[in-house]
Design a protein around this nucleic acid. Structure first.
Lengths: 213, 213
DNA sequence: ATACTTACTGACCCAGCAGTCATTAAGATA
DNA sequence: TATCTTAATGACTGCTGGGTCAGTAAGTAT
């Protein structure tokens, strides 16, 4: 009794296809990936793919959205709900969060957004709104809390929360381009960064804990 | 009397073509740019372009090289030759240097490298060697000098000079993607960053810990 | 069973583009 | 001026790959 040549699985198809597309885009980038290749990876015909996604561009947007939404929501609720002090949060959950980025699908999304973003203004606006504004607002809130509670001195950091994540972006880019030519311990880099920032913004106590880092 | 239909200008052509290509790539990215469009921008026929560059990929590599080489050399000699103290150098020439990046062709090169780098290992190796290693070594040297002369305390920063330029990378990316949705004063961001880093690594006054560890 | 709906297939179409080459004319040489 | 070299042209080609659609068969209702 032969296997049926295919199964009808209307529900799962879109997710399977975006997952396959993510992998293909990760390897070749958007422009150089053939729709046919995505379909093959998903174990599906090209025709079916076009049944779920009107164009290659629509597929691209769906891929970005599928990765982006869950992650940023996690960080936002983390910051809102935590019991930790601002410093503890930065050293703990926040550091863990940015450490994971360079090996997560976020890496692929960042590369895709940088490469293709300018050609897709609506997608960029969406990304800006969902990821950037939301994420930065959450960080700003965290820093303000630190200032309010006397942990941190007043500084320009709450005007530029981007500075907290800049090294994460660098780590992501490094991983995609240089890691094998020029290895970099991104975990340690990110730890060092948090350490430096905290040293710069913490209110000085009389403690003069000036040890090397 | 009509203008001659074209002029023979063997010397200038390559530079004109790479310049045109840079502009075209900046607008559409590498893959989506047609060679014909580059030729038109350069005021030249496609055939001529192929006389100077064997393939589109060769043209791409030439573009990257044409932008990258002069800039990084400038920074390296600056650091080697300066009379300034390390702190003065960071606040002065270095800050100026990274402030210029987000509006310079470097922005385009960064985008192109992130998008296409993984597909061109030899180019990435070249870039890594010329730009990254060189630039980072120069920065490491600057920091070490600061430590040696008692300006800076020993820190992990000289292990990760990347942290000095991470916000510049972020500024570049921000400019290419979000600037019009979500304006950012990158100059001020970079100033803030230098300020924070210096506060973190400067030996505190009255603190006599020198170079020895 | 039988009829019916629709998820799914894959051969096909054709626009668009990298790369070629026979031809043209700018400018050097004498 | 006549001759030669080669920078420069642009029409042409072959192929790649996005997108289509007539047909097929999996599942469902009766």
């Amino acid at each position: 009794m032969p296997q049926p040549r295919f199964q009808r699985r209307k529900e799962q198809r879109p997710a399977e296809i975006t997952q396959a597309a993510l992998e293909a885009f990760a390897e070749h980038g958007y422009a150089a990936t053939r729709v046919d290749d995505v379909a093959k990876r998903a174990g599906v015909s090209k025709g079916l793919l076009y049944l779920y996604f009107k164009t290659k561009e629509e597929l691209f947007k769906a891929v970005i959205r599928s990765v982006v939404v869950p992650r940023i929501d996690a960080l936002k609720t983390d910051i809102a709900d935590t019991e930790l002090s601002a410093e503890e949060f930065l050293r703990g959950p926040f550091l863990e969060f940015i450490k994971k980025l360079p090996d997560s699908p976020a890496r692929i999304v960042v590369r895709l957004m940088i490469a293709e973003g300018p050609k897709h203004p609506d997608l960029t606006a969406y990304y800006c709104d969902k990821v950037i504004s939301g994420g930065l607002a959450a960080l700003r809130q965290l820093i303000s809390r630190g200032v309010r509670q006397g942990e941190f001195r007043q500084s320009s950091l709450d005007e530029f929360p981007q500075l907290l994540v800049a090294p994460a972006l660098l780590s992501i880019v490094w991983r995609t381009l240089f890691q094998k030519h020029y290895p970099l311990d991104t975990d340690k880099l990110l730890e060092t960064h948090i350490e430096l920032i905290l040293r710069a913004i913490k209110v000085e106590q009389g403690d003069a804990r000036g040890g090397a880092m």
